[in-house]
């Protein structure tokens, strides 16, 4: 029994390493295919690496490049936006994302945030969530310490921690409220994607969307997403963030 447990533990410990090794192999294959001009082959290899390893900003960025070079701009925009979700301050991802948007003329209604909004975009959504979580935890600790500690000892330090935590929490919550739409953001994958009146493939078309255009998903219903103007087939859209 002890041998079995030991073997099981060993297998469990080396599995991630094996997966990472395989992912590295696919990354190399993808890079070679990309250099050769086989962009579809490169995209396939990078996708395999993502499946083996899980999401990674650099991998997604490389995949975006491969899709861009294949002329698959909608998918490239999805990849770049996902890479930015994980690495929000990377200039190369932003540059290539802008190029992909220009390639499809999928101009964003509001591509650049206002000056006062810029600090709220310094961190990714997850970084803001983490900052808010840490600030809330610190406030909880400070609050409990103030409740149980008597006397003036350490009160000044606690006050500073409270002020800083409250500041971070206020900024973080503002950023998350302002950017909450990013949670349900999706990208149009195909040119001329049709927006229908009802969630049926035979329903009347009320609008068309450009490839690469960013949209906000409001609801899901049997193979269709509800946008502000109507319903779009799920096959024509891809969400940037993973589902809950």
């Amino acid at each position: 029994m002890r041998y079995l447990i030991a073997i099981f533990s060993f297998v469990l410990s080396i599995l991630p390493a094996i997966a990472q090794e395989e992912a590295s192999t696919f990354v190399e294959k993808g890079a070679i295919a990309y250099e050769r001009g086989d962009f579809e082959g490169a995209a396939k290899a990078f996708n395999e690496a993502l499946e083996q390893n899980g999401s990674n900003a650099s991998l997604l960025y490389n995949l975006g490049n491969a899709h861009y070079q294949s002329g698959n701009y909608g998918q490239a925009i999805v990849d770049y936006e996902r890479a930015l979700f994980l690495d929000p301050r990377a200039s190369d991802i932003r540059t290539n994302l802008e190029m992909a948007r220009n390639a499809t003329t999928a101009f964003e209604e509001k591509s650049e945030p206002a000056i006062w909004e810029k600090p709220l975009h310094w961190l990714s959504l997850n970084e803001w969530f983490l900052a808010c979580g840490i600030a809330a935890g610190l406030l909880a600790v400070v609050s409990l310490m103030r409740a149980f500690l008597s006397g003036r000892k350490g009160q000044v330090s606690l006050r500073w921690v409270t002020v800083v935590s409250l500041f971070v929490l206020a900024i973080g919550v503002s950023a998350l409220i302002l950017r909450q739409g990013e949670l349900d953001r999706a990208i149009v994958l195909r040119p001329g994607t049709e927006v229908r009146l009802s969630p049926f493939s035979t329903a009347d078309v009320v609008a068309t969307l450009r490839e690469g255009q960013g949209v906000q998903i409001q609801e899901e219903h049997e193979g269709f997403y509800l946008l502000s103007k109507g319903w779009v087939s799920k096959e024509d859209l891809q969400k940037v963030c993973a589902d809950s």
Binding site: N53, S55, M99
Partner: peptide, 27 residues
């Protein structure tokens, strides 16, 4: 496109150690 794009597109990244992150919002 191929004639133009590679000159402007930022190149592939060198990936050493592949870390893994979740695309799922922490929320």
């Amino acid at each position: 496109q191929k004639a133009k794009a590679p000159t402007q597109l930022a190149p592939l990244r060198e990936i050493g150690v592949i870390s893994s992150a979740s695309l799922q919002p922490l929320l």
